[in-house]
Design a protein around this nucleic acid. Structure first.
Lengths: 212, 212
DNA sequence: TGTATTTAATGACTAAAGTCAAGATCCAGC
DNA sequence: GCTGGATCTTGACTTTAGTCATTAAATACA
């Protein structure tokens, strides 16, 4: 049985940790539509580890297995590939309340084709695949959240695919402005260009035309 | 209590139906890694309805809600959009053992942005969202299958996005040949071109060059 | 089998986007 | 504030892919 002293000792840690985890708890509850119990929150806090990444630091490098999935508490990152000409192509821009990983590599434990790199100083909560399976997936709110995410992701991927196939660079740029207007403030233009599948020069010219 | 006669009456129907449903059962069992009980199979057979589509017939038209999800037993279809210039862009080619729907419209019951049209005479097994939720999702093998599908789909969408953003028309075509070699035999070249985001003329020229 | 329709190939031209190079501007860190 | 790297703009040119028009080939099907 726990003494009053022991409980007291835990409080400062608890308070400190809780504030870190609040965004994650809010996110899981919001997407799943379920409430997390105090016990369930403890499970999260025991198995997710806080990690800081400096700007330009890599979360994952091509060829490595994506051992962790991370929840972005603060900062941003890009997921990109490098083609045979040495050009980088950004597939995903991740900001607060997004997950950071390469699905394929993380679930199948195969070497990744992607690089994931911090664009700003970051704070993430990360966990391994094995620990997710053993401790986190059994939490109903988490499993429900996963289903919602994969549904949303599938829909978003389809939309993006549609614009990649059927729209001009300019149209894709306009769409990005509408969907993620803050991206323009937050990320350098060459990153936006790479995300749209355009050269930085082309995006610069598109913007110039759009303003006239 | 059921008489011997009544059971006997059911057998021919059962046998007839079973043969239709075999591909679906095999598919669910394979993807989920679980075995379906006789009772569970009966649930499938009670709620999925067989439907035939003639070549060129529409399964879904832009602006309509995608009321059904269909499992392709035989034939093929394309999912496409029409842009403001009247050009069609194929997002998905569906053949045997694939599902036929617009996720977004089907789950959210919103008007679809896509058309789905048979490219060959088709035979599908279809069901509404409400019936899936009530009768089919509770079957563990089906729920497990859904998770596997959404994982696979997410990975495939990411791969396709990567090639759309970072590869030339020719490279995308080569990749298609490697991944789905039978598509070239089965579908007209202009459909393949549309799927790759190319004009039919460009694909024709790419093929000519590749042969030299 | 013959004819209409669809699909594919090709040439000439146009449009969109990429490449390379140079200069301007912005900004982080000392 | 100064300085070096990063980012952005612009011009000249090249490459890639789209468009339009025409002809050829394949296919459907009556």
């Amino acid at each position: 049985m726990r003494s009053k002293k022991a409980i007291f000792d835990l409080i400062p840690i608890g308070i400190y940790m809780m504030s870190d985890f609040t965004p994650l708890f809010d996110y899981v509850e919001k997407l799943s539509g379920k409430v997390l119990s105090a016990d369930e929150k403890q499970i999260f806090m025991r198995h997710f580890k806080s990690k800081k990444l400096k700007k330009r630091q890599y979360f994952l490098q091509e060829g490595d297995v994506c051992k962790y999935t991370g929840f972005v508490v603060k900062g941003s990152a890009r997921t990109f590939t490098v083609d045979e000409k040495g050009h980088e192509h950004i597939l995903k821009l991740s900001v607060e309340n997004w997950w950071l990983n390469d699905f394929e590599s993380f679930y199948q434990l195969t070497p990744s084709r992607f690089n994931i790199q911090a664009l700003e100083d970051m704070e993430i909560l990360q966990i391994t695949n094995a620990l997710v399976d053993e401790f986190i997936k059994p939490i109903p709110a988490f499993a429900a959240m996963q289903n919602v995410i994969s549904q949303n992701y599938t829909i978003a991927a389809q939309k993006r695919m549609q614009s990649a196939i059927s729209q001009s660079g300019e149209q894709r740029f306009q769409e990005l402005i509408n969907e993620y207007p803050h991206f323009l403030q937050r990320f350098p233009q060459n990153m936006i260009a790479s995300y749209l599948g355009l050269s930085p020069e082309t995006l610069s010219r598109i913007r110039k035309n759009a303003l006239k």
